[in-house]
C-alpha cells in the first residue's frame, strides 16, 4: 500500500500560538435522523462516546463525535481504523435512512496551543469567540478569512481546527500570520 501523507506533513509554527499540522486523521461522515433510536445506538456504540448535543463534541480516548449540523455528525478516530469502521457502520445502519462514509483524506487538521488563542482566532473569523459564545467542548463551523473551517476548543488554551485539504496551506499560512510574534491584541486576557 502507498505511504499515507498528511496534508502539510507535520508543518509547525511557533509564535503567539504553537500551530501544528496534525498527522493522518481518520474521519467518518455520518448522516441520519438524530431522533431515531437505532441511529443513535449504533453511532454511540461505535464511537464509544455519548451522543453530542447541538454544536457539541463528545470525546473519549482517541475517538470523538462532532455535531456538524442537525443531521450530520463527524466521527474522528485513528486513521487505520477508519475504513473498516465506516464499512461496519454502513452495514449496521443498512436498514436506516442513514449514511456513513470514510472521508479521512478530505480534511486537514491543526492543533493550536497558547494563551492568546481567542485573540488570534478573532483576527481571522467573524465568529464570536468569547468564552460565553464559544465554550470549551463546542464546535464552531465558520469562516477563516476566505475559507470554511471549524474550530473545536479542547481546552482553555488549546483548540483543534480543521478545513478542507485543498486549502490546508492557506489555513496554515493564515494562522501563522495571525499568530506572528509582535501582533498581540490582549483583548481576551483574563476573560
Amino acid at each position: 500500500m502507498s505511504e499515507i501523507i498528511a496534508p502539510l506533513n507535520g508543518a509547525a509554527f511557533d509564535g503567539l500560538l504553537r500551530v501544528d499540522a496534525l498527522g493522518p486523521q481518520g474521519q467518518i461522515t455520518l448522516r441520519g435522523d438524530f431522533a431515531a433510536p437505532a441511529f443513535r445506538d449504533v453511532v454511540t456504540e461505535v464511537a464509544g462516546t455519548a451522543f453530542p448535543e447541538a454544536r457539541r463534541v463528545e470525546a473519549a480516548g482517541d475517538r470523538a463525535l462532532l455535531w456538524m449540523s442537525p443531521d450530520e455528525l463527524m466521527l474522528l478516530l485513528p486513521y487505520e481504523a477508519a475504513t473498516t469502521t465506516a464499512a461496519d457502520l454502513a452495514q449496521r445502519l443498512s436498514g436506516e435512512h442513514a449514511l456513513a462514509v470514510d472521508v479521512s483524506d478530505a480534511r486537514a487538521h491543526f492543533r493550536l496551543r497558547g494563551a492568546p488563542l481567542r485573540d488570534v482566532l478573532a483576527k481571522i473569523t467573524p465568529a464570536d469567540v468569547s468564552p460565553a459564545a464559544l465554550p470549551e467542548g463546542e464546535l464552531r463551523r465558520t469562516r477563516l478569512a476566505q475559507i470554511a473551517a471549524a474550530v473545536w476548543l479542547t481546552g482553555p488554551q488549546e483548540a483543534r481546527l480543521f478545513c478542507f485539504r485543498s486549502v490546508a496551506q492557506y489555513a496554515f499560512d493564515l494562522l501563522s500570520t495571525a499568530a506572528a510574534p509582535g501582533s498581540e491584541v490582549g483583548y481576551f486576557d483574563g476573560r
Partner: peptide
C-alpha cells in the same frame, strides 16, 4: 434556527 449560531452575514 437550525443550529442556533448567531452567524455573520459573510458566513451566509
Amino acid at each position: 434556527p437550525c443550529c442556533g449560531i448567531a452567524a455573520d452575514e459573510t458566513e451566509l
